[in-house]
Design a protein around this nucleic acid. Structure first.
Lengths: 240, 240
DNA sequence: ATTAAAAACTGATAAATATCATATTTTGTA
DNA sequence: TACAAAATATGATATTTATCAGTTTTTAAT
């Protein structure tokens, strides 16, 4: 079962205006006065791989700003399988959808590695949204972008086969997570998690990865994956 | 190829505050003064089945408010097939995503039947967004809702098989479009369109509809569909 | 009312994918 | 370091779904 992230300590309550990731999300549009208020009211959490930041059905008391690390957003299907709907990394906000629409969380957010996350109370966010139209515009734009990506995802799921989706995902993983100094994709995903993202059986994912390796498009080292022939992978995403 | 809706006539330039659908979308939160401005600047279009309101890649000069009728939102996949991402009906807005994020349209909107559509210029909408925080909140909430539905759709596409998705879609069609006086679902969709919505081959859709009929869950009369056993269909969506 | 085009339908077959069973490897931790 | 648990891997088989080819029915335009 889930391990919940419980350690709410303020030991790292860095001022937001000194935070490196500030520029990366909607918070970049707030004034220094507003920033001070956020700094005062936020708390910082340290979270380990596999821990849940919040889960589907829970009611959120604020939004989370990711200082570093990566996580997955999942949805539980009626068959009990978890669908990974999206990946999120350093600099992004989570929970703003629930806070804005004043509803329960519809996704579960789970850390894929150690991460530091700042919790900003609901009131703080709603007040910013109401009084700072740059901020509300930013939040709205970010939802609009998410919606657009989700629509693309629907089309991919519906129109592409598993092989095409896997190729697509590998390129996507490298693009958003980058590579380590040996050239491997910088994210720690199990085969099952990859399967849950592309919507297939774990065995199919494993088999296709082996095929991609055999055909020379990727290198596998344990669970680490290196892309060797991105041009070919790009072609594979469109089925040739 | 597409037939574009070109007839921009003002013959039906009804005042927005008298419009029946006003209560149904984000515009319900605007003042009567603001409403007057919208009335003055909007134009009304009459559109026939199959005509395109706007298409993927085009840059929008405003948003469209659906006075009546139904339409489909589609996305062109690289394989040339069209994916229906969503259905929209009377009372809803389209194009606000593009206008808010100041980007090109990422979807094509096509009428499924005769419809009247009001066009509201971009400036009008952006001004409302900037100055009326109730309106911006409504727009944002509606994007948040769309996003949530899109995520559910991703999970359904990924986790459910074609039979389950078809059962789900039939129930969904009846729910959002209602039924006529003989009990048939009130929307005119070809088998191909249904297939494009659930992400399968047209033949598979036809075959499964025949099976559902043979098994007594639905009635078919031409392209019209009546749901006979909704409890069973509900069970089918979860695979039993 | 006639007729051409589009849509719906059906069957046969191929291809893709899931499932089950089991072996091997890796990982985390005592 | 050892060992149990988890993850990865592979083969055999069943199931689902797509594709192709053709027929019938419906629709819309003249």
């Amino acid at each position: 079962m889930y391990k919940f992230a419980g350690k709410k300590n303020n030991y790292m309550n860095i001022q937001c205006d000194k935070c490196v990731i500030r520029e990366l999300n909607s918070l970049h549009s707030i004034s220094s006065e507003e920033m001070n208020s956020v700094t005062k009211n936020k708390t910082t959490l340290h979270i380990k791989r596999g821990e849940v930041i919040f889960s589907e059905g829970s009611s959120l008391k604020g939004v989370y700003c990711l200082r570093n690390g990566k996580c997955k957003l999942t949805k539980l299907a009626p068959n009990g399988k978890e669908q990974i709907v999206r990946f999120i990394k350093k600099g992004e906000l989570v929970g703003h959808r629930s806070v804005i629409s004043n509803s329960v969380a519809h996704l579960t957010v789970t850390a894929l590695e150690e991460m530091d996350v700042c919790f900003i109370p609901k009131l703080e966010i709603l007040e910013l949204f109401r009084t700072n139209s740059d901020f509300s515009m930013e939040i709205t734009k970010s939802l609009a972008e998410d919606l657009d990506e989700a629509n693309t995802s629907i089309a991919n799921m519906a129109q592409k086969n598993v092989r095409e989706r896997l190729a697509e995902s590998l390129l996507f993983f490298e693009k958003i997570f980058g590579i380590d100094n040996e050239g491997f994709i910088s994210v720690n995903l199990t085969r099952e998690e990859i399967a849950n993202a592309i919507g297939t059986a774990t065995e199919s994912t494993i088999r296709l990865l082996s095929e991609f390796k055999k055909e020379g498009y990727i290198t596998l080292a344990g669970k680490k994956i290196k892309l060797k022939d991105k041009v070919k992978l790009k072609h594979l995403t469109e089925g040739y």
